[in-house]
């Protein structure tokens, strides 16, 4: 049974660095969830954990197991690809439903539904912001 303390010093340093960077990034993302002031701003915060945190921590664990057991453990690849692919979908759906709800309740600081004719090309450029 190999243990994590059997790592050689270079691998240990690398794993430490990746772990700390990843968890710090996740914490910053969660802080954004706490500190930002509107829902739509908070919508950006979890992507930080999902892209940076997941990638770095999974990389750390991959390196750790590759060195310890001298074979590649590829579960992390699955985790990373899965989270990277699914988080945008969740956030997109959430943003859409929040926009729908805000419009439904008549909030004034959300853009109204763009209602231009398809033929009119001059209706873009942030007219609703």
């Amino acid at each position: 049974m190999s243990h994590v303390t059997d790592l050689p010093i270079w691998a240990a340093a690398l794993v430490c660095l990746l772990l700390l960077a990843g968890s710090a990034m996740t914490l910053i993302g969660a802080l954004g969830l706490l500190k930002l002031d509107s829902f739509y701003s908070r919508l950006h915060a979890p992507t930080l954990a999902a892209s940076g945190g997941v990638l770095l921590i999974s990389l750390a664990s991959m390196i750790c197991f590759a060195v310890l057991q001298s074979r590649w453990i590829f579960h992390e690849v699955l985790i990373v690809s899965f989270v990277v692919l699914t988080t945008p979908v969740t956030l997109m759906m959430l943003g859409q439903s929040a926009l729908y709800r805000d419009r439904f309740e008549g909030e004034h600081d959300v853009p109204s539904k763009p209602s231009g004719e398809p033929v009119d090309p001059d209706l873009d450029n942030g007219a609703d912001v």
């Binding site: 994590v4 772990l19 968890s23 993302g29 954990a49 945190g53 997941v54 197991f65 989270v83 959430l94």
Partner: peptide, 30 residues
């Protein structure tokens, strides 16, 4: 509002997953 709660839940499960990965590194258990 409800969407904030769901956003929190979404972040929560990602972070919980990361915590499990660090447990995996600590115990060298897949």
């Amino acid at each position: 509002r409800a969407q904030d709660r769901i956003l929190g839940l979404d972040a929560l499960y990602i972070i919980a997953m990361l915590l499990l990965v660090t447990f995996g590194i600590r115990t060298a258990n897949t």
